[in-house]
Amino acid sequence: MKEYALIMRHDDGAKVASPEQIQAWMKQTMDWIGGIAAKNQFVSGTGLPFQEAKVVRHDKSVVNGPFGGLKETIGGFIVVRAASSDEAAEFAKGCPVLQGEGNSVEVRLIASGDGVH
């Protein structure tokens, strides 16, 4: 088993959702992660709030906001255990973030300590 990060990207993270919508996402996200955890393949994860987000540029200038000139933002990530990136991608397909057009989930292998993947 290897570990993969599933990185959730939002096309327009600044969009305000209704309470009912957020509650629906909450349930879907919990069901999604719960499903992975039930197979004992969930390692960790976190949401990434937009508040206090800053981007530090090459010239050491600091700008507020997570966007760094782009509309696309990372909303959070989870780390899963999977036999292959294909299996990890199957988990990613269940991510509720994908309901938003333009959103995506990036699957990345976590580098292992021994340098052998």
Binding site: A17, I33, G45, T46, G47
Partner: peptide, 12 residues
């Protein structure tokens, strides 16, 4: 914002 904070925390 409070609901979003919940969404960023509770599932994890």
């Amino acid at each position: 914002e409070t609901f979003l904070a919940a969404l960023e925390t509770w599932p994890y």
